[in-house]
Write a protein that binds this DNA or RNA. Structure first.
Lengths: 223, 223
DNA sequence: CCAAAAGTGTTTATAATACACCCATGC
DNA sequence: GCATGGGTGTATTATAAACACTTTTGG
């Protein structure tokens, strides 16, 4: 085997939609390097861990969320020779899509973490702004041709909530009526539940759960 | 820094279309482990190298091709704890799309390498069959919504040649007349050259070069 | 009743498919 | 001339966008 060895870390782009705004979970670093700067949550891969397991562990530590029902995928790896002043560290970026969660509580493991609107995020520690950009780009692309938008929603949700996800992630407005037909006519996208929900004003909306389908033909966005 | 360190390798899925068949470059391993088995070309990342540079170097060593004008992108990383019997090795898979090249010459650096039709590839060393599958899947997906098919072609090519790429990669038949209009009407996909080429029978075909466009709206394949 | 949001039906514009047809070459 | 592949025009069909309209709630 060769002598040039790397430390391997996983870093997480955890996205959600809070109050109509695409947001990501960031941590304020408490140790050098980049002490005091914002960074993606992450950590080193343990001796007997695979990459996705390591990312799932970090996700639980940061959000309390287990993977079940949520989305976690690998993004890309970053290993520029000078990306970490401590030496050669390869970071495997991951993307997680989660429903709207309460702000992380002080006193917990994730005391230093908080949600930030993606559009307002400035420079991050290491090359984490590149990883964040890759995660947002991937999320946008995947909404187009998969049913992944529903992973941003709670277990039961309305068509309006789902539409809000698309509008927040893409920054566009969609016609509620055409959107409704599009998603309800896509086999396997939405499973109607027995319940309706009344959101104050207007006619109560049907509640849905995620369906089995994962790919979307035809795609959601048309240029 | 942490004590659990990894060796980092890059492995390449190099795809081309030879005689209408999607094919990949594989090497017969000359050293343990997996001695004598087929594997993806690749090697360890050097001390001051970034990942893409390392992959580009391997590509040159295997094919003699420089990246200029060709396509090379990162696929994903693989780091299952038991994927290499020598210890913990993280492999960063890469995807290269290249035009049809002559069979590698005996006596060169790449003496042990040869082209194999993707459909006929059986089990590979390490977890390389997973990486190959990921590369083929990515290539198929990218043809759908990018102009990448042209990177399989020589610098100047006809619409028929380009259509042959799509048919080989997807295993479908496309209507030559509608295909022609589709690609010639997509702004920035093809740049006509001054020349035509006569391929024996039939009317000579216009020669094209790759255009500047990279994305394809609307996509090429419709379910 | 009115406002507001949910949900349906219908028209219209646009794009994809199928395929008839013409063009330019080799033999 | 005729076979062969290159290339264009057009009718048909499927799809998406626009929007009028009905439904069901709270006040």
């Amino acid at each position: 085997m060769r002598g040039n060895l790397f430390a391997v870390a996983v870093d997480l782009v955890i996205l959600t939609v809070r109050e109509g705004v695409l947001s990501t979970l960031l941590v304020r670093r408490g140790v050098a390097p980049f002490l005091g700067e914002l960074a993606l949550p992450g950590g080193f891969v343990l001796p007997h861990e695979d990459l996705l397991d390591s990312a799932a562990r970090e996700l639980v530590e940061e959000t309390g969320l287990t993977i079940t029902g949520h989305h976690l995928e690998q993004l890309a790896s970053y290993a520029a020779p000078d990306r970490d002043p401590r030496g050669r560290v390869l970071s495997v970026g991951h993307l997680a899509l989660v429903p709207d969660l309460p702000e992380p509580q002080a006193g917990s493991d994730a005391a230093a973490s908080a949600w930030y609107p993606v559009a307002e995020v400035g420079h991050l520690a290491f090359d984490h702004d590149r990883i964040l950009a890759a995660g947002v780009e991937r999320a946008r692309a995947k909404l187009e041709y998969t049913t992944l938008a529903a992973t941003f929603c709670p277990p039961e949700f309305t068509v309006s909530q789902l539409r809000g996800i698309y509008e927040a992630v893409w920054g566009t407005e969609l016609d509620p009526r055409n959107f409704q037909r599009k998603v309800t006519n896509t086999p396997g996208f939405l499973v109607p539940t027995a319940r309706k929900v009344s959101t104050g004003r207007g006619r109560p909306a049907q509640l849905f759960r995620r369906g089995e389908a994962t790919s979307l033909h035809p795609p959601m966005l048309r240029d």
